[in-house]
Design a binder for these strands. Structure first.
Length: 353
DNA sequence: AACTGAGTCAACCGCCTATTC
DNA sequence: GGAATAGGCGGTTGACTCAGT
């Protein structure tokens, strides 16, 4: 009964990851890059499921993670995005630099859901998906990433017609099943206000994502890095132009996950970075206990909070920079966040409705 | 000091889509 | 065209922590 496990689980270790395992995983990914998760444990010598490795990397070891408490600004953003997107945590996380879907999901379930139910502060963008083509729920699935195409079927952005209709039939069946069930108010709201089908993503929400991308393309007004980075500090936008040819010196004295014997990359690939050279300073200093202060990234004489394992990779593939799009100082206007709200409203105005 | 209940969060599970063969 | 595989997602679980009694 039941489906086969995602991988051979006999003899695999489960539960919390040890620091040694973290180090092995981080080093392997630094050397070989992300991907091939299924074969990764074997190749890296880890007694873990590939999925577990992926989760560990994404939720904990990745370079651009922002650790510490979720700030009030971030909470506001989560509430607003959730009102629009529903439980699509990965999408929400995509708009909160340094936060993972798991982290946001946990935070939501532990306190924000209650607060959202009670207070309902923040904007709610109501979108009745039943009025949209294929209004329904998108679950799981691999995000389409051009970079992943690697030359194979690059133009094939969506399913083939047949596969699509097959999946659509499946979804229809599923929706029919769900229609027969009693759903909670919250689920209903999420379903009606944000969750979407493939069709929608090509349409209205797809445009929404385009608008987000559009924002990303906008010149980011200022590089606001501080010397005092508390846990509650909102994420900051980074303008590469501001960096100019400056050297980013990465201080990792307090890196909580880096194994001393492994170290961190000393210098990112100059070709990848152009004139933005990165000096990682003394490699491999950090093997401290959990809970150490956040990482500092020195930009000339300025510090900013960051975690550093694999930062070179993030820089190389632009993921890091492309995710740093929200500048809260700019968005949260003195007049009570109206500007932020207007940005969000703009994001979710569907002219097709 | 011992117990308990609530809160937190890392990790797991099962299902999904995309891609490859 | 269909099966197999890989990877991504949201939901759920359970270990752990901590405040309250």
């Amino acid at each position: 009964m039941g489906r086969a496990p995602c991988c051979e689980k006999v003899g695999l270790k489960r539960g919390r990851w040890t620091r040694e395992e973290d180090a092995v995983l981080a080093r392997y990914i630094r050397e070989h890059g992300e991907g091939a998760w299924r074969s990764l444990p074997k190749n890296a010598g880890l007694l873990r499921c590939g999925k577990s490795c992926r989760l560990r990397w994404i939720n904990y070891l990745r370079a651009d993670l922002k650790r510490g408490n979720i700030s009030e600004e971030e909470e506001e953003m989560i509430i607003k995005l959730h009102a629009t997107l529903g439980n699509r945590w990965s999408l929400i996380a995509g708009h909160l630099p340094g936060r993972t879907d798991n982290e946001i999901k946990n935070h939501w379930n532990s306190h924000l859901s209650k607060r959202a139910r009670e207070g309902g502060d923040g904007i709610v963008v109501d979108v009745d998906l039943s009025k949209l083509p294929g209004g329904g729920k998108r679950r799981g699935g691999r995000a389409i990433k051009a970079t992943k195409a690697k030359g194979k079927d690059k133009g094939k952005e969506r399913k083939s017609g047949k596969a699509k209709s097959k999946a659509a039939a499946k979804m229809a069946r599923r929706r029919k099943e769900e229609d027969g069930k009693n759903i909670t108010k919250e689920q209903a709201h999420a379903s009606s206000s944000g969750v979407t089908s493939d069709g929608l993503e090509e349409g209205a929400l797809g445009r929404c994502e385009e608008m987000v991308s559009g924002l990303k393309d906008q010149p980011i007004p200022n590089l606001d890095v501080t010397t005092d980075v508390g846990d509650s500090e909102p994420p900051k936008a980074v303008d590469l132009d501001e960096l100019g040819g400056s050297v980013m010196e990465l201080d990792h004295h307090h890196h909580e996950r880096c194994n001393e014997s492994e170290g961190v990359p000393e210098l990112a690939d100059q070709e990848e970075l152009g004139d933005k050279a990165m000096d990682f300073g003394q490699p491999g200093c950090c093997n401290e206990d959990d809970g150490g202060p956040p990482e500092a990234v020195l930009l000339g004489d300025k510090d900013m909070e960051w975690d550093l394992v694999g930062l070179d990779e993030s820089l190389a593939n632009d993921d890091l920079w492309s995710s740093l799009v929200w500048d809260y100082d700019d968005m949260v206007a003195p007049c009570g966040g109206q500007e932020q709200e207007s940005v969000l409203s703009d994001l979710f105005l569907f002219d097709s409705i």
